[in-house]
Design a protein around this nucleic acid. Structure first.
Lengths: 218, 218
DNA sequence: ACCTGAACACCGTTCAAGT
DNA sequence: ACCTGAACACCGTTCAAGT
């Protein structure tokens, strides 16, 4: 499902030529680099334009405000993230619940961790932003993907799959973010990730998912 | 344990007279009001000073930068939050693990929820900030309080109390924040809160806490 | 001793002038 | 048609001038 962004945050024009597309990519890339190198409060339109090799005026042809640039950047990021998680969900259809949870957490965790500087930069850039629509769209996609996956498990009997699913996602997303925010040593991060899996498993087992693979009847 | 803030974020002078103290309170109050009414990107020193009834120059006597104002504001907030949670932990020493978890989550949740506009405003203000020291100090206090509480439960036998405790807090804090960020309807929020308790209970039971009260020997 | 607010540097955004 | 960058309004911060 596509959720349209608030009108004032829309990009001014769609790139129709290869040149435009590459300009936009350069601007995105420059934004991330400035964010990582200088931090949110030093992220200026001039600096981004300079590093992207265009003038401010050109940037404003594509993004009517600084906010719309950050909006688009986060949109692109969340879109890719959603695709990865959806893929994981699809490939675990019909598997035992335990495997699902493990794979789901691992996929989300890895997507966030493999470029932790980018993740951190985007977390911080998103806050200056009216990003409710983005979060909503992302949440809806994730919800649909994990819901379908969980229900496809053998012998899944959830009393309230929507609540269980909502809770599961809130806990996973929230915990991952919290771990990033505290900047714990990598070994602690790994350990928490494993504990998070155990916790979610315990929860799902209690809520009606069959965690271990069914014994095959012969 | 007191963690000293980065030097450059320190308030310039401590209030020594009643007048100064009330000026500072007025500035804090004005900051929160502007944050709630206008949002992070319209939070300007001029606006805060105006609403607080002082000149910019005076504000800069107490807070050497805008950042130090936000830092102090968050410090004050986290300090009060920590005190409340510590209190909850103290009053549940020796109780069964189940009651502890329920009380801990309820206390944290309520502290965040009773003024959700303030909570949201502070979440957003904290991000422009180099707040690692704050988060760290808060985390350490929470860690100590909940650790002592959990160990005081009857028949608590944790294999790795530090990891369990760290995980528990990461999950609770992270989930609460995620729920705030998504701005879900209040009924969903309540439901997730209950599910979160159940999940943490299941986890602690598995990790070595005795969740239900011991049967009294007669 | 403390307060004020005009002044300065910098940032987001625009638009007349270029190609 | 598209790009440029000086110009404008606004914001963080300072400091000479007031009390």
């Amino acid at each position: 499902m596509e959720v349209s962004p608030p009108r004032h945050l829309k990009a001014r024009k769609q790139p129709r030529q290869a040149r435009s597309a590459s300009t936009i990519d350069a601007i995105f890339e420059a934004t991330i680099q400035v964010l990582i190198a200088e931090g949110t409060h030093r992220l200026t339109t001039t600096r981004v334009a300079e590093r992207a090799g265009v003038s401010v005026g050109t940037m404003y042809q594509y993004f009517p405000h600084k906010q719309s640039l950050l909006y688009a950047l986060n949109e692109r990021y969340l879109d890719r993230l959603a695709e990865r998680v959806e893929m994981t969900c699809r490939t675990h259809h019909g598997r035992p619940t335990g495997e699902m949870v493990e794979a789901l957490i691992a996929a989300y965790w890895e997507a966030k961790t493999e470029r932790s500087d980018v993740t951190r930069a985007l977390y911080s850039s998103a806050v200056e932003l009216d990003n409710e629509a983005l979060i909503d769209a992302f949440a809806k996609r994730m919800d649909a993907a994990t819901r379908a996956m969980l229900l496809s498990a053998p012998n899944a009997r959830y009393e309230d799959i929507d609540l269980v699913n909502l809770t599961l996602l809130s806990v996973i997303f929230g915990t991952v973010r919290n771990v990033f925010e505290r900047n714990l040593p990598s070994s602690d991060q790994q350990a928490i990730c494993e504990e998070l899996k155990r916790m979610c498993l315990a929860y799902l087992a209690m809520a009606g998912g069959e965690v271990f693979p069914p014994i095959q009847a012969t």
